[in-house]
Amino acid sequence: MRRFLTSPFLLVGAVAVVVAILPMILPSNFYMRVAALVYINAIAVLGLNLLMGFAGQVSLGHAGFFGIGAYAMALGPVYLGLPSWASLLGGTAVSALLAFLVGRPILRLNGYYLAIATLGMGMLVAMVISNEANITGGPNGMEVQRMVLFGWRVAGSVTWYWISGISLVIAALVVVNLINSPTGRALRSIHDSEIAARVLGIDVARYKLLAFVISAIFASIAGSYLALLDGFVTPTTAGFLLSIELVVMAVLGGLGSILGSIVGAAILVILPQALTVFHEYEHVVLGAIIVVFLILLPSGIVPAIAALIRRRPA
């Protein structure tokens, strides 16, 4: 158990096994869709966790990148005649470029100032999407063409379960590799103390920017997947509430924890489905659960449980 929790590669292996086994247990396509939603959100949260948990930089605007990825899938085929895979790459490139351009000035800010700056950036994206109705369909959203690969129409919950599941495993591998590289150590040193890192000769601005761009890419890809899974996009995919939701997922699961990103996403995606039994008390229960969990497990679910297990003799 001890080694399992300390070896991130084993952990990714375990995630892969869960992704492979789950379809045998899930009773219907609806559950496959929910699982796919968990994976898609988890990809975005993984990126955000790299930024927040490892580099220690808050972002309240990641839905902006999510939205760019999603709308790329809707707009690319219609206006540029691009196939879906090219639109996905294009959307990712746009997100990365935006993160790169905005990141430089924004990441000089600290704490709450950074939070507001990223929030503003995310809101700008959402506003453009919602206001340019002639292109984006405005608040009512627009339809997304189904992806066609080699003559195969990529649609349906099961297909997307596998695509998002495998992508999540790859994304987790990328993050694990990154945090165990010199880059990862640099990021963590920034998290602990920016000034100390600078004294050690680490190019703080560059590494922060790197984490920001990577997290934007993850969010953008997740957005594209969601658009393809749904076949429809609305401005809520870029909205402030989604930004907050992503942060809640990261914190609830555990900052700086890869498994935590997935657990956090799973809880926030599954909970609203499970809570429908409470009818009008749904939101009361959801709010109470978030508060109670974080009071009892302030470092997030996964790190807290891991600490618990570690404390016991193995």
Partner: peptide
């Protein structure tokens, strides 16, 4: 950050 999320949870609760 955790405290912020707690206040967000509380606001969902109060709204509900």
């Amino acid at each position: 950050v955790t405290l912020i999320i707690i206040t967000i949870g509380a606001s969902i609760f109060i709204r509900g």
